[in-house]
Structure formats: C-alpha cells, structure tokens
Write a protein that binds this DNA or RNA. Structure first.
Lengths: 140, 140
DNA sequence: TTCACTGCAAATGATTTGCAAAGCA
DNA sequence: TGCTTTGCAAATCATTTGCAGTGAA
C-alpha cells in the first residue's frame, strides 16, 4: 500500500499543508483504487462530490502530488495529460477510439524493458523512466 | 527508401495536390535525412529558407503527411507534439533537460516489444502501434 | 502574525477554424 | 471553371500566472 494521503499526517509528511482542498482531492484520487484522471475529470468529480475547489487548484494539486511521487503523469494524447494513481513500474494501453487509457495488467513488457534499457543509454545520461504505450484500435 | 515526396508525381500518388508549399515543406522534411520537427520548428526553418508559407499551412501539411503515413507523430511532452520523418518501427529517447527527442538507434527494445505485444491485447482490440519513450536525465 | 494556499480572471502557448482570396486541374 | 488549398485573424482548448483574499501554523 502506498502513502495514504487522505489523512493530515501523511499530507504533512510529503511536505504539503493539509488544506481542505488537498485532503478532499486526495480522497477522490486515492480512496477508490487506481485510476487515471485529467485535471478536467478530477475537477468535475470534485464538483459532483460537492467539493468547493477551483480548476487552478486542481492543476496545482495534481502537480504537487506528482512532484511528491504520489502520481505519475502519462502523456499519450495532445494536448491533454493524464495522471495515474498507480505509481508502480507499469505501462499503458491507449484506446485510440475513445481516448482512454488503462494500465497493462500482468506486466510482461515491464521486465523486458527494464532489462534492456540500461544497456542502451547514451553516454552522460541516466535513466529517468521508460514509458511504454500500447496503442489499440477497437473496443474499449 | 521511402516515398520521395519532393517530386510532383509522388505527391499526387499519396492523394495530395503538389502545391508550392507542400513540395517545399516535403523538401525540408525528407531531403536531409531523418529528423524530428514541431510545427514551430518547421515553420522557422521554412522562413529561413525563404519559403512563403503560413503556420496554419504547416500544421495542415504535417497532419496530411502523417495521415498519408509519411510522418509519425510522437508525443512525449505536453502540449507540443513532434513529427518524425522516420516511420520505420523504432522508439525514442526523450531528454528531459532539453526537451528534445532522438531515435533509439540499433533497436533492441523494438524486437522484444514486437514479440510481446500481441500476446497481451485485450479482447476485441487490435494493435495500432507501440510507443516506447526512454526518458533520460543529463547531457543531450 | 506570517507565509503558504486558494480562487478568480486574465494571460499564455499550441493548435484549429472560418472564410475570402489564390492556385491547381 | 470548379474544387482545393492557402493565409490571415479570430477562436479554442488545456494550462499557467498574477494577485488579492483566505487559511493554516
């Protein structure tokens, strides 16, 4: 289990003040299993949940959580970017027809990639991360 | 060798009228080895080369070439997208410090990916393409 | 009280679009 | 001529920013 950001102590532990907005957004993000959100979808979900928060704050919060290592930013489509609550080593399906993404479950790709990557890095660089996006057509 | 779009017949062959702007942009794109461009960088290069073309037309042309299978759109960074003149199966380095991309040369990743991918596709979907982005820190 | 955080509205940056003028068939 | 394509400017969309007001320590 990852850091549970839905309580005050853990929010402080990652260097963020436990404000009403951040706690509420954390609850939406981390309280219901792994999910992929955009700023817009999280904002809408917050509104439906009756949480008073501005879109700008949603953007700020997503980036703060990402910087704290609690979210991972996934770029598959311009110009919108997704944030994934699953921060373990894994990769993504991208459904071209619907624009949605999903985690690749039992990740065979992952092991292979991790084995290969270090051997091909250009001199003077270090690996930040490997993103694999398997783009699909057809049913979601 | 790919289709050489720098001449009138081939431009027609992909279903596009060989206009002055399209021919000139094709020359910039396909006349000097593989490269990665954004709409903005191609536009600047065109201006430096004395080609009279608008930014809107550069955008249109990049998408028309992409639809014709002559370019590949690569998304690594929001909200700007790159277009790669190399349309063979291959993947990319992304230099986080500079925001630039480069093809991964002798592509060991590629074979592994191609072997694995078909085995993990969700029912009802077909593989469009696999994008691997190896994100690097440090020197470009 | 102090400094971080929030919200709003305006600014930004990439991209797209509407439409009249220009160019290819 | 007729249908594409172009160019410009305005529109759009996601995102960021400036700044005054609010809230946590």
């Amino acid at each position: 289990m990852e850091t549970d950001l839905t309580n005050v102590e853990n929010m402080r532990a990652v260097g963020l003040r436990p404000t009403r907005q951040r706690l509420a957004l954390a609850r939406l993000l981390f309280g219901h299993g792994n999910q992929h959100v955009t700023a817009e979808t999280l904002f809408e979900r917050a509104q439906m949940a009756g949480i008073k928060v501005s879109l700008a704050t949603v953007y700020n919060t997503l980036h703060q959580f990402t910087d704290a290592g609690l979210l991972r930013q996934v770029m598959v489509d311009t110009p919108r970017s997704y944030f994934d609550t699953n921060i373990t080593d894994h990769h993504h399906f991208y459904f071209e027809d619907t624009g949605k993404i999903a985690d690749i479950p039992h990740d065979r790709i992952n092991q292979q990639i991790n084995d290969i990557s270090p051997t091909i890095l250009p001199a003077g660089t270090s690996l930040s991360r490997v993103d694999v996006v398997v783009r699909l057509r057809g049913a979601e």
